[in-house]
Design a protein around this nucleic acid. Sequence first.
RNA 1: GCGCCCUUCGUCUAUCGGUUAGGACGCUAGGUUUUCAUCCUGGAAAGAGGGGUUCGAUUCCCCUAGGGCGUACCA
Length: 463
Amino acid sequence: MSQIVTRIAPSPTGYMHIGTARAALFNWLFARHHNGRFLLRIEDTDRSRSTPEATEAIYRGMKWLGMDWDGEAISQFARADRHADVAHQMLANGTAYKCYATKEEIDAFREAAREAGRPPLFLSPWRDSAETPDLPYVIRLKAPRDGETTINDVVQGTVTWKNETLDDMILLRSDGTPTYMLAVVVDDHDMGITHIIRGDDHLTNAARQSQIYTAMGWDIPVFAHIPLVYGPDGKKLSKRHGAMGVEEYQAMGYYPDAVMNYLARLGWSHGDDEFFTMKQAIDWFRLEDVVKSPARFDFKKLENLSGQHIRAADNETLLAKLEEFLSATGQTDLTDAQKRLMFAGMDGMKERAKTFPELLEMAHFILGTRPFVPDEKAAKLLDTVSRGMLNRLTSRLRGVSWTHDILEAEIRAFAETEEIGLGKVAQPLRAALTGRTISPSVFDMMVLLGKDESIARLEDASV
RNA sequence: GCGCCCUUCGUCUAUCGGUUAGGACGCUAGGUUUUCAUCCUGGAAAGAGGGGUUCGAUUCCCCUAGGGCGUACCA
């Protein structure tokens, strides 16, 4: 078989829908699995919505998720002349006709049909007319009225429609611009798309589009209509559910590979594998393993996967991703000194975080500055009794060598002297060191911070 | 209305006629632990309903119910 070519064709709406990202992912996985090409086409025929910024949002979303496309993105709008040209070719070869029916006539036809209990499909009187009045017209496909149209869909199987349920769709509007139906077919054909992988809301379109391919004598690509994703309540995904746009997921601080991992598992599976890299997904991906039923979005599972990916990431990559998060959300960059400490302390922080905001929370002892004002819970731990205890501990620590093992031994011994559990020492110590009740190991933090800084923080807290 | 698609634990899914219906998230009981998290062990939890076909159906077929998508001079 010749090289496989897939595409994602989003329309620029100002953000990249998470469902679009998933369709892109399946196309991308499939193309990469087969060493094929994955193309990007911007469906920017709606001029009012198609701004450079909206297109930029798509690029950003794709890049953040790590999906690279081959060649330059193609503008559908720029190809309008070619689309019109094809419509006229169809006119010439008799597979399309000029229809002079007005909007009012069509509406009246539909209404009458509905009242009579007949299908509201418009049957144009101009279909077989030889007349060519000097009036505005649209070009309609002369779709077959008898027989059936069948598509062989890799995911949906063989799906058949009676042609009488499909009408003569408009290809070229009266103002000479192409409709979506025409444009996709022409573009997909010209771009050499071999496999069309898209949401199953396009299933019916596939039948109508295949009629255009047939009319032009073009090869029909392989269709794969993947099930849609809904919100946690089974309703269409909307703002109400928290997030629709890819950038919102980025802003919430999910690890990008985890979003991809999660999206891939919605409707596709490889045995019992739940956690995997994109490299593995590319290796495993087969259209045959995509299910037909729709899935609901589960933020809990996404969060869990994000945690797994953060834990599995090497510290250097993780730090880079964190910086990307910081800049994407407009937060201040890390200084070199902070980066060094973050890198050194990453092991202790990453296993405690599922998202970047949580990672940042764990890094408070590095990113914050003295004096560390305790939050409400931490303040409770630093009562008079604890501060006295901390004072005694501090003077004892002034004389010791600052290594993890020595500090641990020293503090454990101190707890015994005080006749309290280690926890009773560690918690106030943590509060003094970070102003929080949650953090990485106190011993690890002290080593990372160094003796002077640690002692200084303890002194701050004992006042 | 018509057309098409879907239906296994709460959620995502495995099962390609014969399984104690498996895994994951979540939930829950316990263990490890300086907090949190991680990690480890256990538990509850599913074939929409009804007909067939078959020695045997979650699996194949039909009907019903429920859900979704489409039915534009939108994409």
